[in-house]
Design a protein around this nucleic acid. Structure first.
Lengths: 128, 128
DNA sequence: GCACTTTGTCTGTTATTGATATACAAATGC
DNA sequence: GCATTTGTATATCAATAACAGACAAAGTGC
């Protein structure tokens, strides 16, 4: 299901949140669906349950999940886009830096173009 | 020149390294060019010079810069791609998570597609 | 209804690390 | 030669990520 990289410098709880958010955006979970309990997912990932709980809390703050004490985490009806009107800087710059890093690592332009076009097609299809 | 976001959770020294790397990949600096001294750039950015030094050291390790004690940082002749044969996972996954985050923030698919296509064109033009 | 389990939360504790302060050594410029 | 410039090395402080362990309350089976 999810892959956690303990060596990465992005914190584990955020890796979990990012991964789940990606699946939520992709529509893999519908409203009302239950996510695994914090402990179950924690065991599955090999981390502490508090780490998972922090990820769930973050997603709940973003409006993706409804957290009730013993009912687990249920996916919310609909996610209204956050109200901060972030400009293109929030996306354009990280993208360019990501590309620079990839090029610096020796990945070919061709491969990067292919990946970018893949994403474009997914976006056009409304899948992601 | 560079913009540093102190509120960001990605460390400042890495923001500096990322920004400079992006400019290096873009070819804005030619071989032999001198980068500003650590202190000058530090003052410009409002951070400690050790923070800038750390960024320079990282870029030097990657082969972009030549660091000599009192000669400042000079751009190297050519950057040979790092020898680790990282798969597509190093690019595809971060890209998808970046897109998911952008969508979650309410950025339109249209804008994202535009940005992606921009990058594709830049890549095709060999500019970036 | 009552024990027992399940589940998310709360309160520390520890280790890592990002950023700074400060001193240092060596090269440069006059 | 001497003051200045420049990158580096060491120490310190603060923030925080991850974990440990206990807790309260809702569910579950009888």
């Amino acid at each position: 299901m999810l892959r956690i990289d303990l060596a990465s410098r992005v914190p584990v709880y955020e890796q979990i949140a990012n991964g789940l958010r990606a699946e939520l955006v992709a529509g893999r979970f519908g409203p009302g669906d239950r996510l695994p309990t914090v402990r179950a997912l924690a065991i599955d990932l090999g981390v502490h349950h508090n780490t998972v709980a922090q990820a769930y809390r973050q997603l709940a703050e973003e409006g993706w999940l409804e957290l009730k004490r013993h009912r687990g985490a249920t996916v919310r009806e609909r996610h209204r886009p956050s109200n901060r009107p972030d400009g293109p800087e929030t996306f354009a710059r990280p993208l360019r830096e990501l590309l620079a890093k990839a090029l610096a690592q020796g990945l070919s332009r061709q491969m990067l173009i292919r990946e970018l076009m893949d994403s474009v097609h997914r976006l056009e299809g409304g899948v992601l």
